[in-house]
Simulated assay, not measured.
Amino acid sequence: MRLAISALAATAMIAGPALAQQSPMPEDLAWKLLELGRVIDPPKTAALYAPLQQKEPYQGVKVERDLKYGPADRHLLDVFTPEAAAPTPARPVLIYIHGGGFVAGNKRVPGSPFYDNIMLWAARSGFVGVDATYRLAPAFPWPAGAEDMGAIVKWVEENIGARGGDPARIFLMGQSAGAIHVASYVSHPEFYKVKGGGIAGAVLVSGIYDLTASPVGDAELAYYGSDPSRYAERSSLQGLVASPIPLLVTAAELDPPRFVAQFELLKQATCKRQRGCARSFMLPQHSHMSEVYAINTPDTRLSDEILEFVKSVK
């Protein structure tokens, strides 16, 4: 099997022996991700990472499930807070927005450790964690995602103080379609429900930022519609460049090529700003799904970048 690995795998393994030696990813797991290749395959990737994750009940963490932030059935969020023995200073807040191609996905599937894994890492790393879901296309097309981001941030700003969170230090993180919704929110102030957007920073993991840069697929058509003349105004690239909100932009080495190209596009666009480039990071060895499934395992490369980004935002 390994002798038949594609040129992609061989190229990736040549990327740097020193890096491979320092990697917290077991070699066998790295090979399995390479064998899967540049695909988006949640079931097969989850099968690799689920055994590395914790199962409920979670020690030392309080979990509140399915709190309502709006009227729709999917206007739900979970809050993870550490069970501190004594009062502590208000903690920064990490909101996580899942992917699913605009038409699927959830903050949690019963029996799965995802995306509780991100919330557990957040609660044990100095944050209050908020895991939220949102309305889906095609029933709820553009701009439902950005509208829901605004409603989530508003709920958090109003309610997180009672749970030990700092409403002035809210960080909004999304992956794949979740990153696109976060980017849409940041870049379109008309969807803000609180002054200035209500967030201290945004973390964009493997998103699409310019719909005009490559052909759109069925998922984008379901959410953005079939009129290409609207794609530029509904894209987030220019708004992200103009926004004063700090950004961390990431993608995975084994992402499908379109996501890598969009990562480079946004990275280069922000570098033309007077204030300089946005913080960016290409995650080695990982794929589109493993980048977030690996959070709360010994592989801390992405979570370390998130921590450094949060510390850098004053």
Rank of each mutant, 00 (worst) to 15 (best):
I97V: 09
E308V: 12
P215V: 01
E253K: 01
L94Q: 02
D78N: 13
Y49C: 10
I118V: 09
R108H: 06
L136G: 10
R273Q: 13
I199R: 02
Q175L: 00
A46K: 04
I5Q: 14
K314S: 14
G239D: 05
S125W: 00
A86H: 08
A168W: 05
L33W: 08
I95H: 01
M282V: 08
Q21L: 15
L120K: 07
I95K: 02
A252M: 03
A123Y: 02
I295H: 10
S184N: 15
P17W: 07
A269S: 13
A151C: 07
W155C: 00
I245N: 15
G111S: 08
L237D: 15
T81Q: 12
A30C: 15
P26L: 05
K44H: 08
K267F: 01
A18E: 06
Q274I: 11
K32I: 00
A222V: 12
L77D: 12
F259Y: 01
E291A: 07
Y231S: 14
E308D: 12
K44S: 13
E157W: 06
A213T: 14
L120Q: 09
L237S: 15
V79S: 00
D131R: 00
Y223F: 14
Y185V: 05
G174N: 02
S112V: 00
E35Q: 06
A7M: 08
A86E: 14
P26G: 14
D131S: 04
E64W: 07
S236K: 12
L48W: 07
Y96E: 08
S229A: 08
P92L: 00
K55S: 15
G161V: 05
S184E: 12
R275W: 09
K32N: 12
D255S: 02
E308L: 15
V39R: 09
Q262K: 03
V182R: 02
V39T: 15
V128T: 12
G201C: 13
R124W: 10
L211G: 15
